[in-house]
Design a binder for these strands. Structure first.
Lengths: 236, 236
DNA sequence: ACCTGAACACCGTTCAAGT
DNA sequence: ACCTGAACACCGTTCAAGT
């Protein structure tokens, strides 16, 4: 019965068996209905995905309280990660496909702009900084929750693990020396997704780096290209 | 004939018609061969994708020259963006699926670690900072090149554009006021991918923010949680 | 308005058989 | 070693028809 049930079942399916397992036909099966019945409520599979993303993202935008802009951004990043963490298999949709944009939330955008302006961002850098904020919010988490190959996940993990541990120490001495700190905890060198092994401390570092970087940028809006401090603000 | 031809054809197909159009059967068709012939050279579709990613990523790692760590990171980010920009539809594979990890490049990891250590990163923060670097390298670009929904892209773009322009100015005044600077140039508020409309200046801002943030972090490795400056370095 | 039922044009992958 | 050929168990989506 009706769209909401369909979206709920779809999200459940994604949570349990991954994005690839989300099939119009499977949703129909779950609802004891002919596959074609779905198409009366939802135009196509992409629209269903967009609806799922929308639901996942509801309530990430913090209120404009009395917090500093730094704290507001921290809160935004943390909330986004928490929301996606509840449905990790949705991460790739938000991060790597524009499907999600179908359900854009003007509220989020408006608030980010307000916060940036209040922080003293000059208007001619506003669009750039907005993009930096969105990328900072989405980028890390998309990577963190990136899914394993669907089929032979156990096998695949074993193989990657094997390959990691057989890295030649004389060819890559620095990597070899720090392998204990990296193995299964760092991008590229891990065989489990963030939904199984969270990357909390790296995420916190990422948040602090991003905020500190924005801080610096707002102080000196001109890119600090140390090599060529040739042209000044007025020259364009 | 043989794996290399297969991978080449696969990459071509992805470039021309997107990731969804990459089909084992289509590759076979292109090579005038039975679909099942592919399976003698490649174990399955995921392996084919991994091979494509590997080819795309070859040569992104800069040499360890005499550059500052800041310039080295800048160079890395720029090279990564350029490499992915040549095959934009591969972006989602690197950014949002661990398939890519199958072909990990120890060289890249080793060099990043070297550069971070040379920059004065303490060993107990090395893993975190490494993750920050990878996320900074991949995150923005993955978003920038995120593909549109496959099927009705023209239609979809028109609809989103319509929705963007019909944002109620009194509900979201800040967004409405800056819409000219954002429309089709900023995440969530655009209807074309970065492969059609590059986001160069935002990317540059992102690079500078990330580097400046890392700089700050290396100066004061303890997360500047302004609210609770309670525990010091020795307390754990 | 909402669903059934049949049909179309596809998939990835396995397995036996050919050369 | 490398490919053919048939087959299996799936897909998303359209369209006519039922109630």
């Amino acid at each position: 019965m009706s769209r909401d049930r369909i979206v709920a079942v779809a999200l459940e399916q994604i949570d349990r068996h991954g994005l690839a397992a989300l099939t119009v036909r499977e949703v129909a099966r779950q609802l004891d209905v002919y596959p074609t019945a779905i198409y009366w409520h939802v135009p196509n599979r992409d629209a269903l995905l967009a609806a799922v993303v929308e639901q996942t993202m509801s309530g990430v935008t913090p209120d404009l309280g009395s917090a500093t802009w730094q704290d507001w951004l921290r809160e935004l990043f943390v909330r986004y990660r928490k929301a996606v963490g509840q449905h990790p298999n949705v991460a790739q949709l938000v991060g790597a496909q524009l499907v999600s944009n179908a359900n854009l939330s003007p509220l989020l955008i408006d608030r980010i702009l307000c916060v940036l302006l209040a922080a003293g961002c000059p208007e001619d850098h506003l669009a750039d900084m907005y993009n930096v904020v969105i990328a900072g919010m989405v980028g890390f988490v998309t990577l963190e929750f990136a899914p394993l190959p669907t089929d032979d996940s156990a096998n695949w993990a074993a193989q990657l693990q094997e390959r990691v541990h057989s890295i030649r120490a004389m060819e890559f001495p620095t990597l070899a020396r720090h392998l204990p700190a990296l193995a299964n905890k760092a991008f590229i060198v891990r065989w489990q997704s963030g939904s199984e092994v969270p990357m909390e401390s790296a995420f916190n570092a990422h948040v602090e780096v991003t905020i500190a970087g924005i801080e610096r940028m707002l102080e000196a809006p001109e890119p600090a290209n140390a090599a060529s401090p040739r042209r000044s603000r007025g020259s364009r």
